[in-house]
Design a protein around this nucleic acid. Structure first.
Length: 782
DNA sequence: GATCTGTTCGCGGGG
DNA sequence: CGAACAGATC
């Protein structure tokens, strides 16, 4: 195995003198006793139960340093697995900052998926694949399933492809290949789930492609079927570290057990209270079972919290106490005082966003009676990504800089996906899905009929679509302009493929050649729509992004596994993200909006998984609160737009679980029944009692609210208020005026219709936008 | 074969 | 309300 030669080359290398000279004390000194125990217990199975904010990553990094210093393993013999890319990146950065010379990169540090991809490329043939296989994303997966579903004569309206994808993912998470699907699951997807799963796997193999689940599944299957391969890795990875162990699913668990089976030098860090990925197959049981699976396992508890104030910690504990069957940890802190968790109710989601926007500005200015807080130190954590929109809209209006983490991603844009489909066709010619995507983009005069002919020819000859297309032309099945254009495309793809091996050509140049010669760039240049310039801009960015990679293939792999866009102009911004994405992060000030029953806890979660689902939602609440260092603000709205329709909701049941003595209710009692925050809120929520507490009137929040009320009377009906605002917005603009829009840039007004302005933007073309998004050009809100 | 228009359905989270 | 899709129309 040539891949192993590379590894073996390291076998003889000795540790550098510098690494040997490093003294452990440098990184052990500032650890507390529990952390130190976690670091110094090097051999055998170790479970670190690390509560939120207890210095888990710090301990893990010290452990890596210690393993290397004590010469138990070299930097590249340590396998460090995380769950998310963010966690992996964080570790890499922390390790780089560790005051310790590690003598080389910890190469095997990454997510389960990225490490699996690396392993699978080395042994692809054992899974019936070629090493240049494509990693399909969810979109591709659904499209492929849809094709199979239609071929099987199933009505994909009644039995959506998404549903089947979910079922198959579930099986893969449990490490079940098609032949191992249990009889109990036979009824899945109208009795035909297992059958379609088998077809899907066969089709993936034909396409030389894998989906995310396959990355894990294939590796586990290979390890099971080829003990010799497994043994090589067991010997190579002398020590295994696993972060967020509570989130591992069955497949990942098997993956780890196989690798750790011989030496059992496995160290898992986790917190059962932060298990929030049950929906994708994570088994809290894995962490609860650790001591059984690895007899003689050492367990260390990290319980001293260095992150949050006592009030925040107490509030989080109060909520999580509602869960049964916890391993149980008692977080404590030496920190004193601090502000209570703040709670406020709003009339609707827009009001909530407006209030949070104002709060953020106040905190930034330091008018909150404390130091001024930078935008970088604030975050808004939502349950579902669609909640982000209200904040984006509001922040665009008031010109508050924000960044969305894990939101609509660069690599999911149409033009980027198209461009990457071209690259995929060049790198792996069997990738039919990519070919389908680009065969008639730009338009080559190949409609449904022509594409069906290509499909049929390919299938009849058992070849890929590209080869099928070539055959169809040869056999004269296609005629005219379409045939000519298609012939050119096929020849070009092959030619670009050869150029990929050309050393005189960088892959950036190749990418540009592909996009230009295919006519893809030209297509957007000729496009008159206002989006076109932006898309060309994005394509340029794409090519620029290639610089960081050795070749197109490496880039494609990165994209399919990472998919996030880290371009940032460096200015301070408020972060907006989901609660799931926030795990592992911390912020001085955290806002937790949308605490309404049905939204959070999510109705769907409770319907699907009952008490288990509710407990997972509760852990999510716990994760949310414990992200906060100094100020945690929870809010809820009585009314919210769902699918364009107004719906009212009760405050979240989790709000009742917040211990009263650690909460500061900002909603003034006088407003109850006044139509401001009362509608739809149950009297049993406990809010009223708390609000009636006399000290509420003296709280900073209450005073602030009074001040605000003076500026804008809260008793005024909402409709009136809105009308006033809209009129102000409209009346302040005139035709011909030069204005600015956060997204579209500068432009001038060419028409006014009610609250909508028609504006000719200098860069983005003519658009109709709502007046509230616009500011006068000389009044840019920054 | 491309483009336009109307209809439907959905928004839980990530690799 | 918006995206995705299907069918109708050019």
């Amino acid at each position: 195995m040539s891949s192993f030669d590379e590894m073996d080359a390291f076998e003889g290398a000795s540790l550098s003198a510098r690494a040997m000279a490093a003294r452990p004390s440098r990184y052990l000194n500032d650890l507390n006793p529990a952390q130190r125990e976690a670091v110094e217990t090097l051999d055998g199975p170790l479970l670190i139960l690390a509560g939120a904010g207890t210095g888990k990553t710090k301990a893990l990094m010290a452990r890596v340093a210690h393993l290397i210093t004590m010469q138990r393993a070299r930097h590249d013999q340590i396998l460090a697995v995380t769950f998310t890319n963010k966690a992996a990146r964080e570790m890499q950065q922390r390790l780089a900052r560790t005051p310790f010379e590690i003598n080389g990169p910890v190469r095997w540090m990454g997510t389960f998926h990225s490490i699996s991809a690396k392993l699978l490329r080395r042994h692809a043939e054992l899974a019936g694949l070629k090493s240049n296989f494509t990693i399909l994303d969810t979109d591709d997966q659904i499209r492929l399933l849809k094709q199979l579903i239609r071929a099987a004569n199933i009505d994909d309206k009644r039995w959506p492809a998404r549903q089947l994808a979910g079922i198959i993912d579930g099986w893969k998470n449990r490490a079940l290949t098609p032949s191992k699907v249990p009889a109990a699951d036979a009824g899945a997807y109208n009795q035909r789930g297992a059958e379609l799963y088998a077809q899907y796997q066969a089709r993936l193999r034909e396409l030389n492609a894998v989906d995310f689940g396959d990355l894990l599944l294939h590796v586990v299957t290979i390890f099971q079927a080829h003990p010799d391969v497994l043994e090589q890795y067991q010997r190579w990875f002398k020590y295994i570290l696993v972060d967020e162990y509570q989130d591992t699913n069955v497949a990942q668990y098997m993956w780890l057990r196989l690798l750790a089976a011989s030496h059992k030098n496995i160290c898992c860090v986790g917190d059962d209270d932060q298990s929030i990925y049950g929906w994708r197959g994570a088994e809290v049981g894995n962490i609860l079972r650790f001591e059984k699976d690895f007899p003689g396992a050492h367990v260390v508890r990290l319980e001293q919290n260095y992150r949050s104030t006592p009030h925040i910690l107490a509030a989080a504990s109060g909520v999580i106490d509602g869960n049964k069957g916890r391993l149980g940890k008692t977080l404590w802190t030496e920190a004193q005082d601090g502000e209570k968790v703040r709670l406020i109710g709003h009339w609707d989601g827009e009001e909530e966003a407006r209030w949070i926007g104002e709060e953020i500005e106040a905190m930034q200015k330091g008018t909150r009676g404390m130091r001024s807080v930078s935008l970088d130190e604030m975050a808004i954590l939502v349950r579902a990504s669609h909640q982000m929109r209200a904040f984006e809209d509001r922040f665009l209006t008031i010109g508050l800089p924000y960044r969305v983490i894990g939101g609509p991603r660069f690599y999911e844009r149409l033009e980027i996906r198209d461009a990457m489909a071209y690259f995929r066709c060049v790198v792996s010619p069997d990738d039919d899905l990519a070919f389908e995507r680009i065969v008639n983009t730009p338009k080559r005069g190949l409609g449904d009929k022509a594409q069906q002919t290509i499909q049929a020819t390919a299938r009849a000859n058992g070849v890929s679509l590209i080869d099928g297309a070539a055959l169809a032309i040869e056999q004269g099945l296609l005629k005219g302009k379409g045939a000519k254009e298609l012939g050119k495309l096929v020849v070009d793809l092959a030619r670009w493929g050869r150029m990929a091996g050309d050393d005189d050509l960088t892959h950036m140049e190749l990418a540009e050649i592909i996009l230009d010669e295919s006519g893809y760039t030209g297509m957007w240049q000729n496009d008159k729509t206002p989006e076109a310039p932006g898309r060309l801009e994005n394509l340029k960015e794409l090519v620029k992004a290639l610089e960081n990679f050795d070749n197109l293939q490496g880039f494609l792999e990165h994209v399919s596994l990472i998919m996030d866009n880290e371009t940032d102009d460096g200015g301070a911004k408020v972060s907006i993200m989901t609660l799931h994405a926030a795990k592992g992060l911390e912020f001085p000030a955290v806002f937790l909006p949308g605490w309404e029953d049905g939204l959070f806890p999510s109705q769907r979660s409770m319907d699907e998984s009952g008490v288990k689902g509710l407990e997972e939602e509760r852990r999510l609440a716990y994760v949310g609160i414990t992200r906060a260092e100094e100020i945690c603000t929870i809010s809820f709205a009585a009314n919210r737009r769902v699918f364009g329709q107004w719906q009212s909701a009760l405050p979240s049941r989790f709000i009742d679980e917040l211990p009263e003595e650690h909460v500061d209710v900002l909603t003034p009692p006088g407003l109850y029944g006044g139509g401001y925050g009362a509608a739809g809120m149950g009297g049993s929520s406990g809010i009223e009692q708390r609000a009636a507490d006399a000290n509420v009137y003296n709280s900073p929040g209450w005073r602030r609210l009074q001040e605000r009320s003076a500026q804008r009377p809260v008793s005024q009906p909402r409709e009136t208020r809105n009308t006033v605002i809209d009129l102000q917005a409209v009346s302040s603009f005139e035709t011909g005026e030069r204005v600015f829009h956060q997204k579209f840039g500068y432009g001038s007004i060419i028409g006014i219709e009610g609250d909508k302005l028609e504006i000719a933007f200098e860069k983005a073309g003519t658009k109709k936008v709502v007046a509230s998004y616009i500011s006068a050009a000389d009044d840019i809100p920054f």
